[in-house]
Nucleic acid binder design. Sequence first.
DNA 1: GTGGTCTAGACCACG
DNA 2: GTGGTCTAGACCACG
Lengths: 123, 123, 123, 123
Amino acid sequence: MVIKINEYSDVPIYMQIRNQIVMGISSGELSPGEQLPTVRALAMEMGINTMTVSKTYQLLKSEGYILTDRKNGARVRDNITKSGSMSDENKNELRRIVSEARLSGVSKEELQKMLEGILSEFY
Amino acid sequence: MVIKINEYSDVPIYMQIRNQIVMGISSGELSPGEQLPTVRALAMEMGINTMTVSKTYQLLKSEGYILTDRKNGARVRDNITKSGSMSDENKNELRRIVSEARLSGVSKEELQKMLEGILSEFY
Amino acid sequence: MVIKINEYSDVPIYMQIRNQIVMGISSGELSPGEQLPTVRALAMEMGINTMTVSKTYQLLKSEGYILTDRKNGARVRDNITKSGSMSDENKNELRRIVSEARLSGVSKEELQKMLEGILSEFY
Amino acid sequence: MVIKINEYSDVPIYMQIRNQIVMGISSGELSPGEQLPTVRALAMEMGINTMTVSKTYQLLKSEGYILTDRKNGARVRDNITKSGSMSDENKNELRRIVSEARLSGVSKEELQKMLEGILSEFY
DNA sequence: GTGGTCTAGACCACG
DNA sequence: GTGGTCTAGACCACG
């Protein structure tokens, strides 16, 4: 799996990596139980600080997306906790994005089409 | 229009206010040409510093959502610039949110229903 | 002569009017000795405060572009003081504008052509 | 690169700094990728508040001239967005400056010569 | 060590 | 009375 960092983004690097791994798991690109690169390897590959990758893995672990152990490194959990609902933060983000799309002149139809496209990526 | 700040959020205060005003404009709660509270009034009302509100207004101005002048204070622009498309950042956010929703066990149908609900708020 | 105010501009109204009158004099649209509208008339016509127009006229007078007397109102001076050189401020502005044009990807030829066009308006 | 503030100017400090950095980038004095002084260092050096410098950097960032990150501080972007044209504001400023030059008695030839000089600084 | 955010308080130009 | 600017000083997340 290829992870790309956007250096112009305001999203912190550790969060960009986290987001891409989450999307990888959700889309199926990363399978349950699959091994992730070691902190050191990923940091080296991306030319960033090991601390940054470490922060990503700890976050993913605390969110229940991955497991880490000293022997095997980090692996995708095969029983990710399902709360069954979206966080209020994400709901709010959705509202913000939709409202901005409308003000940008994106039509309802265009937006629905785009949303269907994104849904088909993950469902 | 009531603006609520979540002091525990990671989103900076000036950005929370900005987001709520954008949503207000998009939903129609704030009409084109409508006066916004003065910097001082809003700061007082929310118990925050005038500089913070000022930052919000300048951001909204630079984004083309409002205009300010010393006589009338700030008001909603009546010809908001329409790029016609969503920013890459917002598209990416949509993908992140959808991917997280799926991993949380939200079904495609539930998500579609929620999206329709949000769309009907703004379109 | 038609004066247009851009309400979105950061340039104060009194300065926008001043600039347009100066350009009118320089282009010949306003002739030496020509009568300007009264403060009251111009303010009424533009739907702005008389104080704003008054400020404009006082500025133009202090800059030596117009004369005012109680009997005849304001007139374009027929012997505008010629310093013979550009102000340092204006030179600096030119440098700023040219530097921004270049960074915007405007070619030297395009810029020269535009400058010739502007020069032919006033010379 | 030396930045000089004119404390008597009407141009706000953060804007004076912004203008000089833009001119520095355009003239080549500041190279793509080059580090800018840290907010604190520049503020200290110029004897002004860090907030003022911070405002400058955020403006330059929002205009696409520089990028900032917490590790490296601020640096000049190597792919500055090129709109391909001058802003209407800058065109208007050019007209104002040329019209004032003419009224000051600057000849067309002198002005053309000065413009060529400025163009050769940046092109 | 860096930029980002926020406060309390002040002064100013504009209208 | 309004927004715009600036200071002095502080705390925080990121890396």
